[in-house]
Design a protein around this nucleic acid. Structure first.
Length: 544
RNA sequence: GCGCCCGUAGCUCAGUUGGAUAGAGCAACAGCCUUCUAAGCUGUGGGUCGAAUGUUCGAAUCAUUCCGGGCGUACCA
C-alpha cells in the first residue's frame, strides 16, 4: 500500500515537472493525521527554497483526484495526510481470505538460496540456558528468510579438532577410571557436569574394564561427542529445529582446505612466521595487531579453519549467508572476514548477527551458568521450567543487540502478567468463536468466506487496517533480520482484535449477514496471528 | 588504553535510513463479567530520552566530548 502511494506521488510530481526527492510515506502516530502521510513537500522546500505548504497546495488537487483516497489534507509544516477509502479495506479482507496460510509470504527472494549458520556449540556438553537466545533467535530468522522466498539451508558448524574435544575425552576417561579408582585425578580444566559421568557409565556398561588404563582415549572422545550431540539435537528438536547440515572442522583438514588456505596466504605474502608461529598480517587501521593462525605447536588457531569454512560456504554459491554469534565473538568474525578478503574472496553476501548476553533472574536471584561448575542451568531445565513457547518468545522479544534480562518467574507465570498469553489468547479466543459458530449456526460451512458483506464497525475497520500491514511488517523485519519487530506488530493485532471482540458480539442469529461479515474479520485476524506465530516460532493454541 | 554494544516511565523494554503531543507490558490506582474464554476491555497517575555542545525548518534518532554498564582485546573456541 505504501508503495502504491509512493508511486502516485511520484507520478504527480512528474506531471507538475517537479524534481523527485527521496521522500517517505509513513503511518502517522496520530489517527487524525490520516492513514498515511508523506514528508515530500518538506523535502522539496529544501531543494526549491520555497515554502513547504505552498508546494503542498500545488500537489493537493491532483492527489485528491485519486480514487483510493477518501480525503487528502495538508497539515503542520506541510505534511500531506492521506485518508484511505473504505473500499480499500474490503479488498484487503478478500486478499487475506484468499491467501490464507500464505498471506504475508513474499517472493522478493524467490529463486535465491540462503544459508543460516547458528547454534554451532561444540559437542562438549548439553546446551545451557544462555545458548537459548541464539537457538530461538536463529529459529525465527530462519523462518523469516523462508517467508521472503529463500530456499534455506540450516547449518551447524562445530570445532571437533581442537583442545576442547581433547578435554572432553580426558574428562570422560577420568570419570571412567574413577569407576575403578575413586581417587583417579580429574583434569583441572575438565568438564564437571554430571552428563560426563553418564557417558562414562555407558562406556563402562558396554566395555566393562577392557579400556582400563588405555593409552588411546579416542574412543572416549568419540562416545562423548556422540552422546553430547544427541543431547543437543534432542534439545533443538523440542523447538522443532532440524539443521540440514552439520559441518565438522575435521572435514576441512581431511579435504586439504586448511592447508591450501595457509599456502595461499604464504604465496600472497599475507602471512609471516615469527617465534615458530604463523601470523596473518592485518590492516593496522582496522586491527590492533597481527593474529596467529598457526601456533608454534603446529596446530592452527580457530581462525584458520573458520576462514576455510566460510570460504567453503562462499564456494557453495549461496546468495546470502547469515551467521549468528554471541557478543563474545564480536571481534573475531571481523578477523575471519578480513582473512577471506586477503585470500581473495568476496564477503559482501555474508551477514553477521551479534547478540548480547543473557542474564537469568529467578525473582531477585540471578542464575549462574558456568560450564565448569556442575551446577549449570541447562536449556532443557529452562524449557521444563517455563515451556517451549515462553522460552521462544522471551528470547526473540527483544532486539538482539541489547542485553537481555530473562525473568524466569515471569515466563513461568500462567497469568495475565505473562506476555506470551496475550498473543496466544487472541488466537484461542477466535477459535472459541468458531466452535460456537459450528454449534449454533445451522448448516455452518465455509461458503460465507467467499461472499462480500458490508463491514461498518469502526473496530473492524481498524483491525483490517492493522492486518493489511502484515506483509510490510514481514518485509521490514526481514530487512534488518530482527524478528522482535514482528512480535510488537502481532501484539497490535491481538490488541485490535480484543477491542473488536469486546465491543461487538460476533455471532448474532438474528442478523446473519452481520454475523458472517464479522466472522470474515475474525478469520482473517486468525490467519495473520497464526502466520505471524509460525514465523516467530510459537504455537497457535486452539484453546487455553 | 583500544574496539564493538548498550543507557528511554518505579521495573523489563519498543521507538534510532532526522518528522507532528516519546510508546508498550508489568507494578500502582479507579471502573467493566445473567451474553461467543475477564489469560480480556476502559480510564488515571508516572519522563531533564545518561550529560553537554554542535548540525537545521525540526534531534530520543546524526556528529563530537564526557559519565556509567556489558563483552572483547589469547600461540582458548
Amino acid at each position: 500500500m505504501k508503495d502504491i502511494i509512493q508511486n502516485i506521488i511520484e507520478k504527480t510530481l512528474k506531471g507538475l515537472h517537479l524534481p523527485v526527492p527521496g521522500f517517505s510515506v509513513d503511518y502517522p502516530k496520530n489517527q487524525k493525521f490520516g492513514d498515511f502521510s508523506s514528508n515530500v513537500s518538506l523535502l522539496l522546500s529544501k531543494e526549491l527554497k520555497r515554502n513547504p505548504r505552498e508546494i503542498a497546495e500545488e500537489l493537493l488537487p491532483k492527489l485528491s483526484g485519486e480514487k483510493c483516497f477518501s480525503k487528502v489534507e495538508i497539515a503542520g509544516a506541510g505534511f500531506l495526510n492521506f485518508f484511505v477509502a473504505d473500499s480499500f479495506y474490503r479488498e484487503i479482507l478478500k486478499d487475506i481470505l484468499n491467501k490464507k496460510e500464505s498471506y504475508g509470504r513474499l517472493d522478493i527472494n524467490k529463486g535465491k538460496t540462503a544459508d543460516l549458520e547458528w547454534v554451532s556449540a561444540n559437542p562438549t556438553g548439553p546446551l545451557h540456558a544462555g545458548h537459548g537466545r541464539q537457538v530461538c533467535l536463529g529459529k525465527a530468522i530462519a523462518n523469516l528468510l523462508e517467508w521472503t522466498g529463500y530456499d534455506l539451508t540450516r547449518e551447524y558448524y562445530y570445532n571437533d579438532a581442537g583442545n576442547q574435544m581433547n578435554n572432553l575425552a580426558k574428562s570422560v576417561y577420568a570419570r571412567y577410571m574413577q569407576k575403578f579408582d575413586p581417587d583417579f585425578p580429574f583434569p583441572d580444566d575438565g568438564y564437571a557436569g554430571d552428563y560426563i559421568k553418564e557417558i562414562a557409565e555407558e562406556i563402562y556398561n558396554e566395555k566393562k574394564n577392557s579400556l582400563k588404563d588405555s593409552e588411546d582415549i579416542s574412543y572416549f572422545k568419540k562416545k562423548g561427542e556422540e552422546s553430547n550431540f544427541n543431547r543437543i539435537k534432542n534439545t533443538l528438536a523440542k523447538f522443532g529445529i532440524q539443521h540440514n547440515v552439520f559441518f565438522s572442522e575435521t572435514a576441512l583438514y581431511k579435504n586439504g582446505d586448511i592447508e591450501k588456505l595457509l599456502k595461499l596466504f604464504e604465496d600472497k605474502g599475507a602471512s609471516r612466521v615469527e617465534e615458530g608461529a604463523t601470523w596473518l598480517i592485518m590492516d593496522k587501521d582496522r586491527f590492533q595487531k597481527d593474529k596467529v593462525i598457526v601456533k608454534a605447536t603446529g596446530e592452527p588457531t580457530y581462525r584458520l579453519p573458520d576462514m576455510a569454512y566460510h570460504i567453503n560456504k562462499v564456494n557453495r554459491e549461496f546468495d546470502l549467508m547469515v551467521d549468528i554469534f554471541g557478543s563474545d565473538h564480536g571481534d573475531t568474525y571481523k578477523e575471519v572476514l578480513y582473512g577471506m578478503e586477503l585470500a581473495g574472496y568476496e564477503t559482501q553476501n555474508i551477514k553477521v548477527i551479534i547478540h548480547q548476553m543473557v542474564t537469568f533472574k529467578m525473582g531477585e536471584e540471578s542464575v549462574k551458568m558456568s560450564k565448569r561448575s556442575d551446577n549449570v542451568y541447562y536449556l532443557d531445565d529452562l524449557i521444563d521450567d517455563v515451556g517451549v513457547d515462553a522460552t521462544q518468545l522471551f528470547f526473540v522479544m527483544r532486539s538482539a543487540n541489547t542485553h537481555l534480562d530473562f525473568d524466569i518467574e515471569l515466563a513461568k507465570d500462567r497469568s495475565d502478567k505473562n506476555p506470551v498469553y496475550y498473543l496466544q489468547y487472541a488466537h484461542a479466543r477466535i477459535c472459541g468463536i468458531f466452535r460456537n459458530a459450528e454449534e449454533n449456526i445451522k448448516d455452518f460451512n465455509e461458503e460465507y468466506l467467499s461472499k462480500e458483506y458490508v463491514i461498518s464497525e469502526p473496530e473492524a475497520l481498524e483491525l483490517i487496517k492493522v492486518l493489511s500491514k502484515f506483509p510490510e511488517e514481514v518485509k521490514s523485519s526481514y530487512e534488518v533480520l530482527e524478528p522482535h519487530k514482528l512480535i510488537y506488530y502481532l501484539n497490535s493485532v491481538a490488541e485490535m482484535f480484543h477491542k473488536f471482540y469486546h465491543n461487538n458480539r460476533i455471532i448474532n442469529l438474528e442478523d446473519m449477514d452481520r454475523t458472517y461479515a464479522r466472522l470474515q474479520v475474525c478469520e482473517s485476524a486468525k490467519k495473520v496471528l497464526k502466520n505471524g506465530f509460525s514465523i516467530i516460532g510459537i504455537s497457535a493454541p486452539e484453546r487455553m
